[in-house]
Amino acid sequence: MTIVSYIFLIIGAMFFLLGGLGVLRMPDTFNRIQAGTKATTLGAFSIVIGVIFGSVENHLDWIPKLIIIIVFIAISSPIGSSTIAKATYRSKNIPDNLVQDDFKKRGENQ
């Protein structure tokens, strides 16, 4: 059981590393949000699952709290990133490499 737990923990930590690297290397804000959100969400899932496997032997009472953490991260992380994306767009620093922009035409319909 400990082996399985450490496999999940190392995979999760590697996804965190990839998320950090993506935030560092991507060229503009929207792509940074994408890399950061996806990699860290799966990394957090994987680390919490690893801790569940590690604690199943002698800490059974941890599991409800870990499930609450998983559910909360799964709900709040995409909402937070899309809030940042909307605020970035509204604050008028749009990257100039977009090949198509449907969001700009949004105000004309109203």
């Binding site: 950090g20 804000t29 801790v51 590690g54 941890w62 991260i73 605020a87």
Partner: peptide, 25 residues
């Protein structure tokens, strides 16, 4: 830009949540 800093802060927060859960173990 300021927005890049906010993105980095968001990512950092989730990494720190994972770190705290791991420290519990």
């Amino acid at each position: 830009k300021l927005s890049d800093r906010v993105v980095a802060l968001d990512t950092l927060n989730i990494i720190i949540i994972g770190l705290i859960v791991f420290l519990a173990l």
